[in-house]
């Protein structure tokens, strides 16, 4: 499989990275296609009946008790924000 300029722009949109254009776009298309062609060597391998591995830790999920142990420091939460007011984060208006 390979990607074209349109696809790269679509992926960039999904990843919320400003649409690449021109030489930058061409370069990305080439890079991505080289990488994809290379990773596709996995197709040589038969993986029938092989289970996918999602974690190397051989254990079940550890749980915590339902008690309030955190929160209560809104100033710290917005401390690093570029725009904050009354402990709210402020962003350009969200329009759907």
């Amino acid at each position: 499989m390979s990607v074209d300029e349109h696809t790269v722009q679509y992926i960039a949109k999904l990843a919320r990275i400003e649409k690449p254009v021109g030489d930058e776009l061409k370069g990305l298309v080439d890079d991505l296609n080289n990488i994809l062609a290379w990773v596709e060597q996995l197709e040589e391998l038969s993986t029938e009946n092989v289970e996918p591995m999602t974690s190397v830790v051989d254990a079940s999920l550890r749980v915590r008790a339902d008690i309030v142990t955190d929160g209560g420091y809104p100033e710290d939460i917005v401390e690093n924000a570029r725009d904050a007011r009354d402990n709210f984060f402020v962003v350009p208006q969200v329009v759907e």
């Binding site: 499989m1 696809t7 996995l42 996918p52």
Partner: peptide, 27 residues
């Protein structure tokens, strides 16, 4: 580059061919 590749291999229609395949090879 890596964010784009990662987004692509997880996107609809490509998940099985890339990501799932890679997880199996990881096994």
């Amino acid at each position: 580059r890596r964010v784009l590749i990662g987004t692509y291999v997880l996107s609809a229609g490509y998940y099985d061919a890339y990501y799932l395949k890679a997880q199996k090879v990881r096994t």
